[in-house]
Simulated assay, not measured.
Amino acid sequence: FNVTGVFMKNWDIKDETGFCKIEEDYEDAQWVCKKLEIPLVEVNFVKEYWHNIFWYVCECFYLTEQYENGYTPNPDIMCNKYIKFDYFFNFARTKLQADAIATGHYVRSSFGPYLEYFKPDTNVSLLQAIDQKKDQTFFLCQTPQQALRYSMFPLGGYLKEDVKRIAQEAGLDKVVSKKESTGICFVGKRNFQNFISEYILDKPGDFVNLDDGQVLGKHRGFHHWTVGQNIRVEGLPAPYYVYKKDVDTNNIIVVKGTHHPALYSDFIITKNPNWISSEPEFNSFTRILNCNFRFQHRDPLVPCTVHKNLTNQLIIHLSQQLRALTEGQFAVLYNGEECLGSAIISFRGPSYYSLKQEVKMDHQQNDEIRKQVA
């Protein structure tokens, strides 16, 4: 292949310490491209990121407005959809006249890692990576079909340790030793509460105990909290966790204990489904699809039944209760190793508390929840 490296600049504001990591990343990109003897092009998508990810998605506020309304969105998924696989993809194809793009995502394509099985009249499928611990299909669940058809994913067939070994053998020790990137897509790892407060005004309210209505403390605003999070108010005799955000009163309703039944449900409704390859085949009579579900990146897949109603909403019944299902997050659906697509969770069904049902879980679920609330 004739390869050109592209460095995307999508954020230009220093973090709370006054440090702008993008400058360091660009220096690393220059070093790698020089080492590989390939050209490097820099492209600026700051304006596009600001308007499409941070402020607007589909002509409405996505990140900030949804945080103000009590939703908890996933900007990383939308960043892939609108920046990497839209603006960057079109830049590469039109400005650079590239035949395809290649990214470092740990996913696989049914067209093969280098599009060797490409078929012009066939849709491509998005498949889970060989390295299940690093699989990133969750984050590409909204990626457009047209972009996926011309995208290479060379890392999807390797374990992470093998990728590091190959990079070391190529003399790229400098970047192999770097810590993995975390935090908001392109914004980076930073104090999220301080960061989001720069763009959303605090609107204080009370933490209210669901069980007895007692006020347990004050919060600075909905945007600082998400469902299932430990509120960590000093002086309380036990940990309390966010159950829901009451937009009418501006109160955050909390419950005592990690396994309070109010935090668990097994039913959601979603809107605006995005099917990656094509819409899967629902039962013609029942309009039901049997598949697997997750709403957080590293959660185990859970069997579910999906019913599609006449307004294109997906009504999803899970085979087991899940903790902290959250409106605004994505329900990502799988069939075997294929990521079918995703839809935004618009309604969380009744909790086990309201249904007066007992929460039952195995040791694996218990371990996963400990990781979530740690």
Rank of each mutant, 00 (worst) to 15 (best):
G156A: 07
N10L: 06
T17Y: 05
Q365S: 10
N250P: 01
M152E: 15
F222L: 10
N191E: 05
D212E: 12
P239G: 01
V208W: 08
A102S: 15
I22G: 01
F91P: 09
T311Q: 07
S125A: 11
Q372W: 13
C58M: 07
V359N: 02
V359I: 09
V233C: 02
F45R: 03
G257E: 00
R348S: 08
L301D: 06
N123P: 13
K81I: 11
C58Q: 14
K47W: 04
Y150Q: 09
I288K: 11
G188E: 09
I196Y: 09
K203G: 03
H260M: 02
N209I: 01
D76Q: 10
C185N: 10
K119A: 08
A129Q: 10
I196S: 07
K308I: 08
T286I: 13
P239Q: 00
L36W: 08
I184L: 14
I288Y: 03
I231M: 02
Y117W: 13
F186Q: 14
D246A: 03
D266F: 02
W50F: 05
T305N: 13
E327V: 14
N74C: 07
P239K: 00
Y67K: 06
V163D: 00
T72S: 09
N366I: 00
K178Q: 15
I268C: 10
I53G: 06
Q146C: 01
P120W: 07
F89L: 09
K119N: 07
K256H: 03
G349A: 01
S346N: 11
Q193L: 03
E281L: 12
F61S: 15
P261D: 12
Y150N: 08
E65T: 15
Y334L: 01
P120M: 08
T258I: 12
Y241H: 14
V254C: 12
D173V: 01
N272S: 14
I252N: 06
R348W: 00
F54Y: 11
T226V: 09
L340G: 05
L263S: 04
D206I: 13
F45I: 04
I231K: 02
N230L: 02
F61K: 10
N80T: 13
N272F: 05
R298S: 08
E338D: 01
M152H: 12
P113Y: 11
P237E: 14
I253L: 06
F7K: 10
A98S: 15
P303L: 07
T226G: 11
T4M: 10
D173G: 08
S351M: 02
M361R: 01
V41G: 02
K81V: 10
F330W: 05
Q365T: 12
T305W: 04
P350H: 06
Q132F: 06
I315M: 03
G183H: 09
F118H: 14
F111N: 11
A92Q: 03
